[in-house]
Design a protein around this nucleic acid. Structure first.
Length: 506
RNA sequence: GGCCCGUUCGUCUAGGGGUUAGGACGCAGGAUUUUCAUUCCUGUAACACGGGUUCGAUUCCCGUACGGGCUACCA
């Protein structure tokens, strides 16, 4: 395959759903695999649904995910403009061409009239039958049509769907799909406000931008028949792009496709980035803010509906592009499973260097009022990285590296600490620890072992006291490693504070 | 309702006329770690149903059921 040109064409109506990210990803992967071009086109033809900030959101989300366009809105290129509202005149030309060729016609029926027709008959369709009795340039005289146009009366341009044909679609994912043209309605191509509908704009732009593959969600499959008819009407059918319709992403629970509401309802992210809408109901947390590594999100999304056919699970973007093929895209909907996403994230965190992790974790720690040295922070993330799933877990599970604990594991202390003697027993340990010239893990361990043996205790009597005394919890990295990082003075301070607490509380 | 698409463990999926139907997540148990996590081992669990075709269907065909999408001057 050569000169692959694919596009991701979202509508800026709000935050970009995770399904959109996957569509963008598959397009990107195909382009990357064959050295093609990945284009971002903004489909803002519905002025009533335009949401300020949505375009910026889309671009930022793509950058964050590493699915970066090589051409398109805000990325430049020779086939612009890439925002459909900036291409209005182009669509008008093509819509008129349709009328001139006899493949389209002007229609003057008002939305109210059409609503009424649907009210009267719920099977009403503006099609090859009904157009003969409706208000359009097929039924009106040429003079009357011209008069209406001249008077500035509102009109739309509709596609004149041919009668009695079978439209064949060769879908890369689904194989051959057929539609009877008699089932198809005469879709509006140019709206009353002069803007094109999705169908016209999409076909015209894909043609003008030399798109070779249309990879989009399954919801577009039914209207693809109209698109094929449109290519035919313009005489472009022979160079029509190839179609690939992706399976939908389904709700984690219940039935139906994943919706933005599922995120809030289940407390899981279904958007790449957080979005603040006008109301709390229209505001959502993103994968980024929830603490996901974008590489993990991408890896996870890649596997929703596609599989390399091998047993490898962890893929970098480069590996994904290498292994990707449209033929391996599945046909059935994939249920969104946040547990799997969490597993991927854990894998990526464990595989990350301390340097990388420190960079991500620093802002989290600083948000809690601490400015650790880089060395300290790196040791910290190194010790914690096998014990976290999401980035915020570093703080949630490891705050004691930076400040005193406020609650501690009382159950363990009750078992191991005696108010009438433990303090005296452990006092020598504190002294011996203070005597360590080099407070490294091995030295501290040797010291603790020496104390344990001399006191006739078992490791199991001493370690929990140290661990809970230092951190408040029984969960965490190796005690001696933590002690070495905390340092002699801090350990002594913490133990004395803990002994006081133990005596008070137990 | 009409048109279109789909259906392998709870989930993501591999596979494909004759297989012990494979992997991953999750869950359960065990080993290691005198913590937790990691790691390793083991277990759990699936071809929607009914007819064909065939020596043989989970795999091919047709139905049914179920699920989904579309059916706007929204994308």
């Amino acid at each position: 395959m050569e000169n692959i040109r694919v596009r991701f064409a979202p509508s800026p109506t709000g935050a970009l759903h995770i399904g959109g990210i996957r569509t963008a990803l598959y397009n990107y992967l195909l382009a990357k695999k064959y050295g093609g071009t990945f284009i971002l086109r903004i489909e803002d033809t519905d002025q009533t649904r335009f949401v300020p900030g949505a375009e910026d959101y889309i671009i930022e989300a793509l950058h964050w995910a590493g699915i970066v366009p090589t051409e398109g809105q805000s990325f430049g290129g020779e086939y612009g403009p890439y925002r459909q509202s900036d291409r209005k005149a182009i669509y008008l030309d093509y819509a008129k061409k349709l009328v001139e060729n006899g493949q389209g016609y002007y229609a003057f029926d008002t939305p109210e009239e059409l609503d009424a027709a649907r009210q009267a008959d719920d099977t009403f369709k503006y099609d090859y039958k009904s157009r003969a009795r409706l208000n359009n340039s097929l039924t009106l005289s040429a003079a009357e049509v011209q008069q209406r146009l001249d008077s500035g009366a509102p009109y739309v341009i509709r596609l004149k769907v041919p009668e009695g044909e079978t439209v064949h679609i060769q879908d890369l994912v689904r194989g051959e799909v057929n539609f009877q043209s008699n089932e198809l309605d005469d879709k509006v191509m140019l709206k009353g406000d002069g803007m094109p509908t999705y169908h016209l704009a999409n076909v015209v732009d894909d043609r003008l931008m030399k798109i070779t593959h249309v990879i989009r969600g399954e919801e577009w499959l039914p209207s693809t028949a109209h698109h094929v008819l449109l290519y035919r009407a313009f005489g472009w059918e022979a160079e029509m792009p190839r179609f690939a319709h992706l399976p939908l992403i389904l709700k984690p629970d219940g039935k139906g496709k994943l919706s933005k509401r599922d995120g809030t309802r289940l407390g899981i992210p279904v958007f790449p980035l957080s979005w603040t809408g006008e109301t709390p109901e229209d505001s959502f947390v993103g994968f980024r803010e929830a603490g996901f590594d974008p590489r993990a999100m991408v890896n996870f999304m890649a596997f929703m509906g596609w599989n390399p056919g091998t047993e490898q699970e962890i893929f970098s973007m480069d590996e994904l592009a290498e292994a990707f093929s449209v033929e391996k895209i599945g046909k059935s909907g994939a249920r969104f499973d946040i547990e799997k996403a969490r597993w991927f994230n854990q894998q990526y965190i464990m595989a990350s260097s301390e340097e990388e992790l420190a960079k991500t974790v620093r802002p989290i720690v600083e948000a809690h009022g601490h400015q650790p040295t880089e060395a300290y922070l790196r040791s910290f993330v190194g010790m914690m990285k096998e014990r976290v799933v999401l980035f915020p877990d570093f703080w949630t599970n490891g705050a004691y590296f930076f400040e005193d604990f406020t609650v501690f594991d009382e159950a363990t202390i009750r078992k191991k600490w005696k108010t009438d003697g433990s303090r005296a027993i452990f006092a020598p340990l504190l002294e011996q620890l203070d005597g360590q010239a080099d407070y490294n893990a091995a030295a501290v361990q040797a010291c603790v072992e020496g104390f344990t043996n001399a006191a006739g205790l078992k490791f199991g009597d001493v370690l929990p006291i140290l661990r809970v005394g230092l951190t408040g919890t029984m969960k965490g990295p190796a005690v001696f490693d933590m002690m070495a990082l905390l340092g002699k003075v801090e350990c002594r301070r913490r133990m004395e504070r803990a002994f006081d607490l133990f005596d008070q509380v137990i």
